[in-house]
Write a protein that binds this DNA or RNA. Structure first.
Lengths: 336, 336
DNA sequence: GAAATGATTTAGATCGATACAAAACGAAGA
DNA sequence: TCTTCGTTTTGTATCGATCTAAATCATTTC
């Protein structure tokens, strides 16, 4: 039998209502009474039963965190950022890893709503339909999208400026003299992939440079290795530089190049996106467009908490600027 | 105003009690009635309020998952395994990332107990005191430790047989003819580190081989690089093989060796622990003692669910056998 | 046709806290 | 001494489901 507010009340010789006031740190209670009750709480080893309280207050102080792929270091970092910000505010998050399955994602959202989470942060699984978001919103569930964006309707969203990131990467390569620049990672049906592909094309054309080949690639090291085989034929018009959807493929591409006897960073420039720790220590060290995953996580958590306290506020879109981190894989040091 | 059991009861022309029976899939309800109620549930768009139900049933169908370092790919994989098994059983987990801080860990446990989780899976932060576990257990909170083990008291625990793993690694190197084998990753005050260091010593002595130097190293790539500087002096009695606490340091060691002009896999053999994806694609590919992180996660989740249903059962210790995955970094292919 | 049986359904208390309105108290002022 | 007023405390209904024991109801049996 667990100790409850009633037990404490009896022990301290007051009413349950007063105990409740103390628990909620209300200023109404006299100091002597408060002290007495607090000592009762200690001696009885009471544990606050938030779920019971929630029944009346309608706030559970919990949120859901739905991630498409927790084993990707980038998303691991994102969840760490979310967790950090929530912890600071005294909240806590359910984690659900969808592994890119929209049906798992649906199931999780249902489960989270049953638990009455106050809101959800979601990096949508590939194939999520915009309809899902309008449904959740119509059910009064605050939802913040991170990174990927589904649908056109305004909604809370935290991401990075991938267009700017791509501009930085392309400009950098053009400045280094590259004219045959390829993009690896095109075809996926998520906004973050489309953003990058589109702006890759747009920026190259804007600079009057030829738009190099675009090769589909999953965001994995393995598929990066594979993409190299598709991209390099050993002909004189092979690309001299490759921009990759993310660091995982970039690392794959570097491995694939090395397998083919092409030295990344010397014979072919490689640039990734994300700036995962692994890239900094790879040889050659990976030049990359740094997307602050932890920071995006923090911002998303803070935005969600704002939205929960004011559900009727204007939707916010927070786009953080990326930074180009120049290391060895783009050959910049070399040409100096 | 949310729809409740009462609303459904009114709509279907029955009592709330009957609706509750339908929600719990009780066989007591007549088929016609059940159908009618289910259609009411659909038309009213009812969402089950699990938290309210929990108040009576004492089971929340939630667990806590406390991880010491979510950004380590190994632990990311572990959480994916836990999440997978819980999902299958219809449960869901809170995630808390302690970043190796025992005080954060304490705070999280308190918060989880307030949420009345039915149990906790924990990879304890470095510096966790055994007293914490006895406290939690005395409070009736089922706790399963994963990997690291704190204290000597019997308790539920899922891990891998690191001693066996170390044996496999050492035997392999001895068979390849190595006599000067070093261990990188000694000093941390967690059981998984002690296990490895101790059995490193024990096994080498058992085989009558000299026990090479043991160098402290954090489980990061960076510190692996640093350890190399400490270990290799360019003298003839430098080690010819290095076994590392985990794959992250092993990769660091390989990078450090390359920086020094020593080819890992040819001039120095390197073996890690964990088998994270990154290692398979590193060049040279990393030979490693594979610890099935996802599987350990699944086992831990299943064990916790068992413990929750029978709190008085005997504590279980599940130790999964590791496997040596031979790739290029140990030079095995070379010597054939 | 009454009694017994089994299948369904339900009233009402309950889980553990909070919200609200009202009560008790003590000090100050008339 | 009696009001009045501000401070503190409390009784009771409530959140949304479940549990228990008891009430209906439809059959079957004698």
């Amino acid at each position: 039998m667990r100790t409850t507010v009633k037990d404490i009340a009896r022990h301290a010789g007051v009413s349950p209502a007063t105990v409740s006031l103390v628990l909620r740190k209300s200023p109404l209670v006299a100091d002597v009474t408060r002290a007495r009750i607090e000592s009762s709480i200690d001696t009885l080893g009471y544990v606050y039963h938030r779920a019971a309280a929630n029944l009346r207050t309608r706030l559970t102080h919990t949120v859901g965190m739905i991630v498409c792929e927790i084993t990707n270091p980038f998303y691991a970092e994102l969840t760490a950022g979310i967790d950090e910000a929530l912890d600071k505010a005294g909240w806590i998050a359910f984690l659900a890893n969808t592994d890119e399955s929209p049906s798992r994602q649906d199931r999780f959202v249902t489960r989270l709503r049953e638990q009455r989470v106050d809101g959800v942060i979601i990096a949508p699984a590939e194939g999520t339909r915009a309809e899902a978001f309008t449904r959740w919103r119509s059910q009064g569930l605050p939802v913040v999208q991170v990174l990927r964006r589904v649908g056109r309707r305004p909604g809370d969203h935290v991401s990075a400026d991938f267009k700017l990131g791509m501009t930085l990467a392309v400009e950098h390569l053009l400045r280094l003299g590259h004219r045959r620049i390829a993009f690896v990672g095109g075809a996926r049906s998520v906004s973050t992939a489309r953003d990058r592909t589109d702006s890759f094309r747009a920026i190259l054309s804007r600079f009057g440079a030829p738009v190099g080949p675009i090769v589909a690639c999953l965001p994995t090291r393995e598929d990066g290795v594979r993409a190299v085989r598709q991209l390099f034929a050993g002909r004189p018009d092979d690309p001299t530089a490759v921009i990759c959807h993310n660091d995982l493929c970039a690392i794959g591409v570097m491995l694939g190049l090395a397998d083919r006897g092409l030295a990344p960073g010397r014979e072919v420039a490689v640039i990734g996106f994300d700036n995962i720790p692994e890239g900094a220590l790879h040889r050659p060290a990976l030049t990359t467009v740094a997307i602050g995953a932890r920071e995006i996580g923090r911002e998303a958590a803070e935005l969600l908490l704002r939205r929960i306290t004011s559900p009727e506020g204007e939707p916010e879109t927070i786009i953080l600027p990326p930074k180009l981190v120049v290391r060895a894989s783009c050959g910049a040091q070399l040409r100096r």
